[in-house]
Amino acid sequence: MARFISRRLFHLIFILIGVSILVFLMLRLIPGDPAHLLVGELASPQDIARIREKLGLDSSYVYQYFIYASNLLKGDMGTSIRSNVPVSQEIFVRFLATVELSIAAMLISSLIGILAGVISSVRQYSIFDYFSMMMALVGISMPIFWLGLMLMYLFSVKWGILPMMGRFTMGLDYHVISGLVMLDSLLSGDIQLFFNSVKHLILPAFTLATIPMAIIARMTRSSMLEVMSKDYIRTARAKGLSRGTVIFRHALKNAFLPIITVIGLNFGLLLGGAVLTETIFSWPGLGRYVVDSLSARDYPAVQGCILFFAVIMVIVNLTVDIFYLYLDPRLRIDGKG
C-alpha cells in the first residue's frame, strides 16, 4: 500500500511539471496583458514597460519559466499581480470556502443519488423508477444558473426562509480557527453561528449537488441492475437472507466500484470551484477567484490555481483507488489487503 501511494505521488511530480509548463504557455499566448489591465486605459507606454519589467514579464518565456519553477521548488507560488498578496494564501482561504460547499454538495448528492438509484434498481419499471430517472434526466440537463436563481427566488425572496448570499450573516462574530466556518463555530461553541452558516450553505449546496446527484443515481441504478442478476445474489437469497441484507450487503458493495469512481470524479471537479454557483450565491470560493484572476490576466494566481487543481485531482484519484482496494479484494496484490 505504501509503495502504491508513493508511486502515485512520484507520478504527481511529472504531472505538475507538465501542467505548469502548459498553463504558463497558454496564459502568455492568449491575448491580453496584465500590465495593461493593471494600470488602465490611460497609462503611457513607458508606464506599462516599467510595470512589465517590475513583474518580470519583459524577459524571455524560458527565463520567466525558469524563475517561476525555481520559486515553486522553494514553495513560493508567487504573488498575485492584482492584490500583491502571496498566491498560496489567497488560494488557501478560498479553497476552504470551496471545500465546505463541495463536501456539503457531495454528501447531499451521494446520499440521495445512491438511495434513489438503489430503489430504482430493485423496483425496476415501477413508478418510482420512472419518476426518479426522469428527475435525473432533468437534473443533468438543468441549467445551473437558472436553477440557482429559481431556488434563490423561491426560498430567499418569496418565502424568506433561507439567506441569499455569503457564508454567514455579516456582523456575526467569527473566530477563525481552521477557516471552515461550520467546524469553527462548533469548536468555539457558537451555536448561533453554526446554524447561521448551515442555512447559508443549503441553497448553494443543493444547486451544486443537482448534476452529480443525477449522475450518481443513474450510475447506481445501472450498476445495481447488473449486480442483482449475478449468481452470487441468487446464492445469497438461497441462504434465506432478507431483501435488505441481499441488497445492501451483497449487491451494493459489488455495485459500488463504478459509483465511487463517479463520486470521486465529481468531487474533484467541485473542489476546483463552481463558478456559476459561487457567483449566484456570492460564495467566496475558488471558482470565481480563477475566473476573476484570468480576466485580470493575473498570471501567478491562475498558474497557482491550476497547479493546485492538478494536485487535488491526483489526491482524489488516489483516494478513489484506495477505496477500490478496500472494496474489491481481487484488486489487492497480496490478497490479504
Binding site: 449475478k230 452470487y232 441468487r234 446464492t235 450487503r249 451483497h250 458493495k253 459489488n254 472494496l327 474489491d328
Partner: peptide, 8 residues
Amino acid sequence: MTSLNPVL
C-alpha cells in the same frame, strides 16, 4: 466460479 460473492 460465480456463485460466491467476490467481495466477502
